[in-house]
Amino acid sequence: MKGNGIEVGKCTPPVKDIIYIYRRSLRHFGDPMWWPGDNPWEIAVGAVLTQNTSWVNVEKTLRRMKTMGLFTPEDIRDSPLDVLAETIRPSGYFNQKARKLKVLSEWVIKRCGGDITRARSLRMDTLQKELISLWGIGQETRDSIILYALDLPTFVVDRYTVRILRRFGFDLPGRYEDAVEYIKALVEGISSSTQFLNRLHALFVLLGKNYCGREPLCRRCPLNSRCEMAKSVFKNEKK
């Protein structure tokens, strides 16, 4: 891959397919410029708020938090739980997310002195274990914080990614958790560039939202010339 030191001709078929998906999607969508946020802490907060909701609701919630003066880790820690929950109501599941934000804020204050960027100095395995141990922080949220807020090399795998790669023709493990681990290892073995990992995840999200939903829009999808599901759909249309 140009700029990442990868010679495509020497790659295995799954790696070639990932690189194809990346390049084709990047040409189609352009640079996603993801993740939006004014600073690393805002990005980390957004990673929690975006669980099970749209980004429009996250943006509305972030504005409310800033207006209410509930934005630094210390602000969130010191806020009454009910006040914080009401402030983040637009994000949905607001009572649970308020608790999650308090737990994350406590960790940042105790472990990083209130500055989440200090977590960059931790060993990756230590950082991963500590974040995943926090109540309400699952693998996708953890990896989003590591990649987008801390700019450290890890790949975020979500349901869009698994769905797209299954339909494309990847022979993924049947269990979702195993498929996630397979994809993470595959992609992280291609490049440690955070720009590449960032863009690829964002491009999978765009593909999933625009073309590869529960009802796929194969005819419009930029990957349809190589995707096994698209080929099957087109073949059936000719019958």
Rank of each mutant, 00 (worst) to 15 (best):
L122A: 12
L122P: 04
R123M: 11
M124V: 11
D125I: 12
D125Q: 11
L127T: 03
L127C: 08
Q128G: 06
Q128R: 13
K129H: 15
K129T: 14
E130C: 05
S133N: 10
S133A: 15
L134A: 10
L134I: 11
W135G: 05
W135A: 08
G136V: 04
G138M: 07
G138F: 05
Q139M: 09
Q139Y: 07
E140Y: 06
T141C: 06
D143R: 06
S144Y: 01
S144P: 03
I146K: 00
L147C: 11
L147V: 09
Y148V: 06
A149S: 15
A149M: 10
A149Y: 02
L150Y: 06
D151H: 14
P153I: 07
T154M: 07
F155T: 05
F155S: 06
V157H: 00
V157N: 00
V157P: 00
D158C: 12
D158N: 13
Y160A: 09
Y160N: 15
T161P: 01
T161S: 13
L165E: 01
R166C: 05
R167F: 11
R167M: 13
R167Q: 15
G169E: 05
F170H: 03
F170V: 05
D171S: 14
D171W: 09
L172W: 04
L172G: 03
P173S: 08
P173L: 10
P173T: 09
G174I: 15
G174M: 14
R175K: 15
Y176I: 09
E177M: 09
D178E: 15
D178G: 05
D178V: 10
A179N: 10
E181M: 07
E181W: 04
Y182N: 11
Y182T: 04
Y182Q: 11
I183Y: 01
K184R: 15
K184G: 02
A185G: 13
L186N: 03
L186H: 03
V187Y: 00
V187L: 02
V187E: 00
V187N: 00
E188T: 13
E188D: 11
E188S: 14
G189I: 05
G189Q: 08
I190F: 04
I190C: 02
I190W: 02
I190Y: 01
I190R: 00
S191V: 03
S191F: 05
S193W: 08
T194A: 09
F196E: 01
L197K: 03
R199W: 03
R199K: 08
R199V: 02
L200S: 01
L200F: 12
L200T: 02
A202D: 02
A202F: 02
F204I: 10
L206R: 08
L206V: 04
L206F: 06
L206W: 07
L207A: 04
G208A: 09
G208N: 06
N210S: 13
N210E: 14
Y211F: 15
C212F: 02
C212R: 00
G213Q: 10
G213T: 12
G213S: 14
R214G: 13
R214F: 09
R214P: 12
E215V: 15
E215P: 07
L217E: 09
R220N: 14
R220M: 12
C221F: 04
P222W: 03
L223K: 05
N224C: 14
S225C: 10
S225K: 14
R226Y: 06
C227A: 12
C227M: 12
E228D: 11
E228R: 11
M229H: 11
M229D: 08
A230H: 01
A230C: 15
K231V: 07
K231T: 08
K231N: 10
F234L: 14
F234C: 14
